[in-house]
Structure formats: C-alpha cells, structure tokens
C-alpha cells in the first residue's frame, strides 16, 4: 500500500503533514546538515522582526520535568537579513518556508509583512501573537481577542500570502481567540505556543530564568496542546490547523491529527535530535500502512468522544 501523505492546508498543498516550529528550527539552514529540508511539509523559521533583535540577557533557558523553559526574547537577524542571506539558500534547498513574524506594534508587524511582499519563496506567513517572553507586543495581542482581530485585519490587508495565526495557550478561552483571528481574515491557525511558567533556584531564591518567567515547551505540555487543538477544531470545522506542543514520536503526530490538526510542527524535540523531523515523515507513512490508513488526511478530526454526563448528585 502506498500511503498518501499529501496534506491540503487551505491554499497550500504540503508534501506531508510534518513541519517544524518557529523558534526551534533556526532559519532551517542550521538543520540542512542533519536532514533534507525539502522532505518536510513546511518549516517555520525563527520569528522575524523589522529590525534585528538582540533578545533577552541570559540565563535564557532551563530544563524542567519533561520539558524546558525559555525566555530567548525573539533574538533574530531581522527580516531584511533573512530575505537576503537565508531565504535564497532555503529556496535552493527546496524548503517550503513559513515566515514567522512579530512586532511590538501593529505597524511593526505590517512593516515586516510588507518587506516580504509577494515573494513566492515564502509559502505562508505565520503571525506570532503569543510570545510570552517580550515586554511589549506578542501576547498583548494574543491575550485579547479584540486587539488580535484588529492586528490580523491590518496584516490581512497588507499581504496576499496565506496567513497563519499562531495562538497563545495562556488564555481562558482559546476558541474566542481562534474565532477572532479567523473572522479577521486568518487562513489557518497554529496552536499552541509555550505556556508561561516559572522555575526557581532554591539556594539563591531567584528565578532560574533571567526574564523571571519563561515559556514551557516539551512533552509536558502535550495534553494541553491536544485539548486546545480539539476545542478549536470542534468550534471551527474547516479551518486548517498546525498542531504542536511536545511532539517527540510518530504516535504523538497521529494524536494531533486525530484531535483535529491537519498538520503538525515539531518543536523542542528538534533540539534533542536534529534529524527527528525527517525521520517522522517516514515513520508516519509506516504507521499509516500498519493501520490500514491510505491517506493521512483520513486521520484528521477523527476523535471519538462520549457524551459528557450532567452532574449526578448522590
């Protein structure tokens, strides 16, 4: 049996549903030595700002149980350097590139998107409204459906590229944020970004991270991510979704597809094993074959849930 891994993702047609997550994959080129970039469904590059950004002072990371905290602070080379120095090589290597963008203000986001313009070497734009590690921008939009809608409307007007909005899990109602983004013109959603956490150095009674709090990623967050993907899928049946959060194995990939993601992004696991993402493409085909699944898209949104009972008081 030949398994069909191709994935319709709104206007995009991905080779397979395995992508890599922004902030965990550099500009892609760092991984070219460990895997074939062209073999991946899509790669989402480090969040790009209009001007280069130095990021936060160290310490920036620490390990936690089944995961890690980070507060990198969106250090990046800036959109111009990305377009001039990274994108040509990514295009030459055949990568499907998603440009992740961020800013402090609406104008900043629009400026980055306008710089990218109609460059066809960029397959889609992913809007980061969910970074918990910068003082301005980022989560100010991600936490507030009205601010989010206003931002997405402006970006929508500024680009013809497919527009993916990456949502923050640090909200009470992820579905309200998803609706706000989609109603404002998002073509697709990515969820989830990191969960805000705190780790403490007991002897010093100081946070282990210089920024005090950091974003939690890794296997520890996978159940939360699955729940949010599932909630948004139920609420918005047609919207293309990138699911992510703690994916380490092919079984984890399949979980996200069943919960309702059309495709996934491998994140922190890229740090542990730089070859993992491409290996998962092969393992996904094998898993589908073993389970009699002819098209990987047949797995999407197939969670069988039971009706939830009302409270029964004794």
């Amino acid at each position: 049996m030949t398994v069909d891994l191709s994935t319709a993702f709104g206007r995009l047609r991905l080779k397979n549903p395995i992508g890599t997550a922004s902030g965990t994959f550099g500009y892609g080129l760092e991984f070219a030595h460990y895997l074939d970039l062209a073999a991946l469904g899509a790669i989402s590059v480090k969040g790009l700002s209009f001007r280069p950004c130095h990021g936060n002072p160290p310490p920036r990371i620490c390990e936690t149980d089944a995961g890690m905290l980070n507060a990198i602070g969106l250090q990046n080379v800036g959109v111009d350097a990305f377009l001039a120095e990274k994108l040509p090589e990514l295009a030459r290597l055949g990568a499907t590139v998603i440009a992740n963008v961020w800013g402090d203000t609406e104008d900043d986001y629009v400026a980055v998107v306008e710089r990218i313009g109609s460059d066809r070497r960029v397959a889609a734009i992913e809007v980061n409204v969910s970074c918990p590690n910068v003082v301005k921008g980022g989560m100010i939009f991600g936490n507030n459906p009205e601010a989010l809608a206003a931002l997405v409307k402006r970006i929508r007007a500024a680009t013809g590229h497919p527009l993916v909005v990456k949502l923050s899990p640090n909200v009470t109602d992820i579905v309200a944020c998803a609706h706000a983004a989609v109603d404002a013109g998002a073509d697709a959603l990515s969820l989830i970004n990191t969960l805000v956490g705190l780790a403490i150095d007991l002897e010093r009674r100081e946070p282990k991270i210089g920024f005090t709090t950091g974003g939690l990623s890794g296997p520890a967050i996978r159940p939360v991510a699955l729940r949010m993907v599932w909630e948004v899928r139920k609420a918005i049946p047609k919207i293309p979704i990138f699911g992510m959060g703690g994916i380490e194995t092919v079984e984890h990939v399949v979980e996200f597809l069943i919960a309702g993601a059309n495709a996934v992004q491998i994140g922190t696991a890229n740090f542990r094993d730089p070859s993992l993402a491409s290996r998962l493409v092969g393992e996904l085909a094998a898993w589908c074959e073993d389970h009699g699944v002819a098209r990987v898209s047949d797995l999407v949104d197939t969670l069988r849930t039971r009706p939830r009972p009302d409270h029964e008081f004794a």
């Binding site: 965990t24 994959f25 130095h54 990021g55 160290p58 990371i61 740090f271």
Partner: peptide
C-alpha cells in the same frame, strides 16, 4: 546551559562588548 548545541535554541548566549549576545 544549552538545549541544542548547534546554534538554534539561542539559550546559551553571553553578552559581547559589541552589544550582541
């Protein structure tokens, strides 16, 4: 402390005299 070891997590930085990390 390093998460990746090959320049992508940007977790292991030190401040440089030119202002960069």
């Amino acid at each position: 402390e390093m998460a990746c070891g090959f320049g992508v997590c940007l977790g292991c930085v030190v401040p440089m005299v030119d202002g960069r990390f």
